[in-house]
Design a protein around this nucleic acid. Sequence first.
DNA 1: TATGAATGAGTTTTCATTCAT
DNA 2: CATGAATGAAAACTCATTCAT
Lengths: 199, 199, 199, 199
Amino acid sequence: MRKVDHDSRREDVAAAAASLIANKGLEALTTRALAKELGCSIGVLSHYFHSKEEIVIAAFRWADQRIDLRMQEAIADDSPNIESFFPVIKAGLPLDAESDLEWRVRLNLHTFALTHDTSLQAEREKNQQFRDLMTGMIAGLQNKGHVTKEVSAEDITSIAFDLVNGMAKNLVMCPFDEREQKAEYLYKLIEMLRPLPKP
Amino acid sequence: MRKVDHDSRREDVAAAAASLIANKGLEALTTRALAKELGCSIGVLSHYFHSKEEIVIAAFRWADQRIDLRMQEAIADDSPNIESFFPVIKAGLPLDAESDLEWRVRLNLHTFALTHDTSLQAEREKNQQFRDLMTGMIAGLQNKGHVTKEVSAEDITSIAFDLVNGMAKNLVMCPFDEREQKAEYLYKLIEMLRPLPKP
Amino acid sequence: MRKVDHDSRREDVAAAAASLIANKGLEALTTRALAKELGCSIGVLSHYFHSKEEIVIAAFRWADQRIDLRMQEAIADDSPNIESFFPVIKAGLPLDAESDLEWRVRLNLHTFALTHDTSLQAEREKNQQFRDLMTGMIAGLQNKGHVTKEVSAEDITSIAFDLVNGMAKNLVMCPFDEREQKAEYLYKLIEMLRPLPKP
Amino acid sequence: MRKVDHDSRREDVAAAAASLIANKGLEALTTRALAKELGCSIGVLSHYFHSKEEIVIAAFRWADQRIDLRMQEAIADDSPNIESFFPVIKAGLPLDAESDLEWRVRLNLHTFALTHDTSLQAEREKNQQFRDLMTGMIAGLQNKGHVTKEVSAEDITSIAFDLVNGMAKNLVMCPFDEREQKAEYLYKLIEMLRPLPKP
DNA sequence: TATGAATGAGTTTTCATTCAT
DNA sequence: CATGAATGAAAACTCATTCAT
């Protein structure tokens, strides 16, 4: 048989699909366009996916996981403090071309999920896991005195979560050269989480 | 007279289209489905709109404007203070069935705009207008001592803007009975805008 | 609206489909070929049928009912006797071009039903009704002394039923000019049903 | 040696194809499904057959010959009489699972032949041979006084031939436990072939 | 021989749009 | 104005066949 890595080929397809979704929109993701983007025949697609919907889902997962991975890699494992947040959050925002593409796909996923129950369920579960993780981290920081206890860990999580989603949506609509600056206030907000100096 | 009828008919179509978008997704908005939703023949649509894209845009505008209108109506014209924010923000969030539908459409619009330049431009201009308006209002409140000056009016606007967008996206994914509670932290955040009592 | 009789249009489609099935086989019944046969565009088909399978079923029913109708019309209502059988059976056999087409479709249906439960069920029910009807008729003739009681009405029905099916299959494989002759023995067989003259 | 392997492999393919045709229908016989049924890769098929049509024909022949073989084996070579018919006819009907499968394939073949001239020709020739053989046998029995001369050998052959085809089609549509009983009348019919006792 | 990835023509199906009534 | 039948381009999907490994 010809040597091909099935999983890696699937990922190629997913990445190409994600690229189309990001640049032309979900409705432009046709099997023809995708085959062209991949430089192969349309028949190839059915080797790796049973239907177009499967491809769409794979593209969504591909982009979603890359954003998450990017953030995980930015997490400093040892002795986290307020400063640790900055790189993680930067990693989670669409500040360069690569993450811009991924966020465009993720935003499509959010809309898609609104009317696709399975995706909606998956989305909600993923969010909940993420929130639990983050709440735990913040509570840890609070206990170590790195973060103010004036706001509950849950509320900080909620703020961060919604803010990142809202800002990401906002950023992908802006030219790249305005994004860093637009994201700046977020860092100021983080600063406000420092505990007040004890009198 | 005839003009009124014509416009009101166009709005009916837009509303029906919005309903379909919200409940079934943009890809489920077909001319047949729309005619069925409206209880009329497909031929009618071409009397009021030249193409399907026009209908989509009209649905987007319809929903968008209703959210904005809802917020404007909640604005207390005279002597605004921190408390004035609460009803406005509530009015701007998808907390009931009606606003839920509108937000679902708006979220579709956001995704749509990512790959449709005209809509993107319109979206950005609208946002800018809204931000300018809000920044002005907050600066006024700051001058009157109702809002802390520790954070700039621009930053408060940015926070509010992104937060509402992120939260709205979040809320439409939740059951209605969890929404009020999920939105609660926003009100706490507003409380933090109060100026510190002078020592 | 354009004046069209929906049901009659459906029948046109079914008839055209039946013609294709009879002449080219079920696998040659494509939407393209059918549209061509009908002299219309492929889109028309979806106005009258939701799927190709529906069309296939309609074609089967069309042919099936025409054979049955042909037989019913040949039934002499009043005072039936042995002679009454001849025209009915002739009407039920593929002896001319029209009934040949219908039988070809019916034979396709029989094969189709083997692996399509719904059709199989329908086929069996129809057969049972037909058998019950025929058994009743024969019993009546037996009581009136027109038909021998040496063979039970049920057995005569079974013989007739299987014989007609087998013979029809046989006849459609023959040139038309051989068919009448091939069917002749059936009439002889019917003669044997006459009761023996009482000694 | 190698030739044997080759032929046996071809038969495996034909048998697997026949199984698919019988259980899922001719349209379900795809190269992929066949490879799966065989437990091998699709590439194998092209080693043993040049095209799918060849495989279909082979499957038809496989089933057809097995029915014929089954009947031949049931023929009592020496001193045949009326009783000799019973086991032959039973062997020729789809009364158990094995012959059921073969008859399902044969019925597919009959339909297939309607629109495939080569198969039709083959079918007709085979039938004619069979009829000639049977007519000869019956004439022999008539001469020996085992079978009535009231009906010509040709007519008896025709009756038997059509009856078996019709009944087979009938039986494969019934549950197995009803088949023996449904076939019973055939044996009664054979009894009627006995010559009348001379007065 | 055996494999199964790749091809691409062909099929069903969907759908915005047009237009005769 | 309203209707919905008709159109046909374009979509997703199927599948026999080929061929590099």
